[in-house]
Design a protein around this nucleic acid. Structure first.
Length: 576
DNA sequence: GCCGTTTTCGGCCCGACTGTTTTCAGTCG
């Protein structure tokens, strides 16, 4: 879905949007041009190199999906920072068009119809049209469509000002690593909901300490970062910018002696800090971003550890700061020792070109090896997921022999896996004799999201060959609600059958949800944390998955892919 | 707009689901 190169994201996003605009304009001759643009956007997003480098080395035309026309547009973007045809298209359509496309259940055809017949050109005018009962009367629309549209708007509004954390994750990491190159800075940390690993974030606050006499130079470096689109303001201690992908980032320079209290203050959450201030007040203390004070006397401010300890409690990791029991636990010295990214030994849910991934098995394996993994499971889809090019028996045999050959020459161990579809009746999409051949079987639901799926999951877990339930709730942040489940029954059965529950790190999934991870832990469930990568760049989403698991109070011992391969194989064998 | 042992034109993924229809269009993955 994204890679580490800002320019690739920018170009890919333009082709995606151009495809949407052509679809809206609705010229039937454009049908396959649209598909070409959609395809090339995906390709560009998963390229292992920045596209301006490929261009300067005359290698654009060697990439599948890039021909003369698209290469010329990429060149135009590299030279001018924009593509004229895209700018013209945008002028030819209503301004709020991309907002309308983003409403679930609305596609280009219906947006067009709404625009032509009712003059709808924004979320606001859409809502107005539904409220007035106009939409319901359009040909092809009815009461249910209108209701769906309202629900869709609601889903959109919930994330309108906030964005899924995965969408900004790599941008923020890149800003941090760029700023860390500055020798006048010491600490550089993103605070706020980003640091707490909330599923969505608003503005991002970056806190830094360093040589205060060099503030002018430091702020200049920040405002001139390559991803900056607009500078909202820049002063001695704070600068604000908007990135090219529309994220507001504030950069604050604080005194080294106040870094701990400032970081504590700007990390939140609000509820956590309110509770903390109450406790401080009861002790006669006062807390601010400048320090923890007893009267006029400074008690703590340099580090967060010092600040928390001064209130008679353990240091509370940022992912836990939601005022849902973490403060009481910290006071009793009873916080869990949370899992770390470095604890992960491998990824158990990834896709390759064999199904709907964008890289070869070898590319995926080498990228995983670079992350320091001992193993990676390539879990391509099963046949019923036709859109994802699921593998039949014949292709499985070929894939297996490719893996065997690679395992002869690579250091990392590649596990032969599948993400097998859980069918309508809870059976899975391969017979036992095939299932038994896999090292890792992830079973997932990809259909019938509008019903209670408890029975399907229970039956899948009872299958002796199913090791892991993939993305158990099926939700997509801002797009699709979790389907109905009796979680208690699911957790009980997972524990009984030794089925591992996945914590999926894909940026729109983050599934199981954090509070259910905590709940499942009470039932002694086991977890795997997976990236569900469809390209090499996505493998880095493991970090997001781990931080999400930390929100669920996960420890190393709860997570099977912290084990070395030998122990992992034992668990997979023994647990079923 | 791209592609090619079906190669310079003709094909490009396609089935499930939903809500609207009463045989189908649009959306989604």
């Amino acid at each position: 879905m994204y890679n580490s190169f800002m320019i690739n994201q920018e170009v890919a996003s333009i082709f995606t949007q151009m495809a949407e605009l052509f679809e809206f304009l609705g010229d039937p001759n454009d049908k396959f041009k649209i598909r070409a643009y959609q395809n090339v956007a995906v390709t560009i997003e998963s390229l292992p190199e920045p596209i301006d480098k490929l261009f300067s080395e005359n290698r654009l035309l060697g990439i599948k999906g890039i021909g003369q026309g698209i290469a010329a547009k990429i060149e135009e973007y590299i030279d001018n920072g924009e593509i004229e045809e895209f700018e013209m298209l945008k002028r030819a359509v209503p301004k709020g068009i991309f907002d309308l496309f983003a409403v679930p259940s609305l596609g280009p055809k219906r947006v067009k119809q709404l625009n032509v017949e009712l003059g709808v050109d924004s979320i606001a005018s859409l809502k107005e049209a539904v409220d007035k009962g106009l939409v319901q009367n359009l040909a092809g629309f009815g009461e249910k469509s209108a209701k769906k549209i309202l629900e869709g708007i609601e889903l959109r509004l919930n994330v309108s000002e906030r964005r899924p954390i995965g969408e900004v994750f790599l941008t923020v990491k890149m800003i941090l690593s760029e700023m860390k190159k500055c020798k006048d800075l010491k600490d550089v940390v993103a605070a706020g909901s980003f640091r707490r690993a909330e599923e969505s974030v608003g503005d991002v606050d970056i806190l830094a300490t360093g040589d205060i006499t060099k503030t002018e130079k430091i702020m200049k470096i920040f405002c001139e970062l390559p991803m900056v689109a607009h500078i909202l303001g820049s002063g001695d201690t704070k600068s604000s910018i908007i990135t090219k992908d529309g994220l507001q980032v504030d950069f604050r320079l604080v005194l080294p002696d106040q870094f701990g209290s400032a970081l504590q203050y700007f990390t939140g959450s609000k509820q956590h800090n309110v509770e903390l201030r109450t406790i401080a007040k009861n002790r006669g203390y006062k807390i601010s971003e400048y320090g923890f004070f007893n009267g006029e006397k400074l008690i703590a401010s340099k580090t967060e550890e010092e600040c928390y300890n001064s209130l008679g409690m353990q240091y509370i990791p940022p992912e836990l700061r939601s005022n849902t029991g973490e403060i009481e636990a910290a006071q009793k010295n009873a916080l869990p020792k949370l899992i770390e990214v470095d604890d992960i030994s491998g990824d158990l849910h990834t896709h390759s070109l064999w199904s709907d991934g964008n890289n070869t098995i070898e590319e995926m394996a080498l990228a995983a090896q670079n992350l320091g993994y001992e193993y990676i499971a390539l879990t391509d889809h099963s046949p019923s997921l036709r859109v994802a090019n699921g593998l039949n028996h014949e292709r499985l045999i070929k894939k297996k022999s490719e893996i065997d050959a690679l395992n002869e020459k690579l250091k990392i161990k590649i596990l032969f896996g599948t993400e097998v579809d859980i069918l309508a009746d809870g059976s899975v999409d391969y017979p036992d004799e095939i299932l038994s051949k896999f090292d890792v079987v992830v079973a997932s639901i990809h259909s019938r999201f509008n019903q209670d799926n408890t029975e399907r999951l229970l039956k899948a877990m009872q299958n002796p060959y199913v090791h892991i339930i993939g993305h158990p709730s099926g939700r997509m942040i801002g797009r699709r609600k979790p389907y109905e489940l009796d979680y208690e029954m699911v957790f009980k059965e997972a524990a009984n059958t030794g089925t591992i529950l996945e914590i999926n790190g894909q940026h729109l999934r983050l599934d199981l949800q954090d509070f259910y991870i905590r709940e499942a832990k009470r039932w002694n469930c086991m977890f795997s944390i997976d990236s569900d990568s469809h390209s090499i760049a996505n493998l880095e989403l493991m970090e997001l998955g781990v931080r999400w698991a930390r929100r669920g109070w996960c420890e190393k011992k709860d997570v099977v892919n912290t084990l070395d391969l030998k122990k992992l194989r034992q668990i997979l064998k023994k647990s079923k």
